[in-house]
Design a protein around this nucleic acid. Sequence first.
DNA 1: CGCTCGGCCTGTGCGC
DNA 2: TGCGCACAGGCCGAGC
Length: 274
Amino acid sequence: MPEMPEVETIRRTLTDKVTGRLIADVKLLLPRLVKWPSPEEFRAAVTGSVVTRLDRRGKYLLFHLDNDKVMVVHLRMTGRLYHVAPGAPPDRFTRVVFTLDGGDALLYADSRTLGTLYVLPADELWRISGLATMGPEPLSPEFTPEYFRESLAGRRVTIKGLLLNQKLIGGLGNIYVDEALALAGILPERPAASLTDEEAARLYGAVNAVIAQGIEHGGTTFRDYRDGAGQKGSNQHHLRVYGRKNEACSVCGTPIARSEVAGRGTHYCPHCQH
DNA sequence: CGCTCGGCCTGTGCGC
DNA sequence: TGCGCACAGGCCGAGC
């Protein structure tokens, strides 16, 4: 579910709840979600450790532990990670329970069970290929207009497909790609290399803008997404095209269209985007 | 190497 | 009301 703004919101809302806290117990209700090492080793490594820092890279959350290991969580489509008080009502989709020393807990819930968990020595994070190959993130110093423009050169893939490629830009997903293209006035199926320098500059600014807006509004909740306190985001009220098929474009009134680009449901304004 | 497609899983909402 | 189908915010690996 979550893209960079959602994962960043989870990180921000969870930081104070977990930093400096002892993980007293780990219940793996669905052990196959642990991708590295074995579920037994995962449980042994995490139990009894203290969280020293909570980081994010792209859509990955990184819990640094005081045993020089890092617990890595990727929520994929429907994962949720949130803090609950002692005795809180159970989440129907709870897959992992991290009980903290105060009896409160960090829950990992996931209806489609596509999420992934790992624990690794801090210097072996390269074992997670998606982390090792991730490109620069929007709003980061490495993500420059020049980097973006050069990334488009010679690319025959659609501009939407390129924006979704985590090796080139880390953290974008289906919602924010559609939103950035709408803000920039560019059609999703355009070949990446066909963008002019002016269009590339506009899209660069739009990518940063929609991500910043998503974070500002605490993420986009359509169905499953919740922040680290279990609360919904509000960015769904500020979207231009995503999920608005047949609704009037806020700029020109033309009905928003939906098609498939790069294998994903795609929303755009057929009048404003070229 | 670049790119597309199928697969992974389960739940929900819609049309009939 | 019940049923089948389309669709879902991500990513990896196979194959062209």
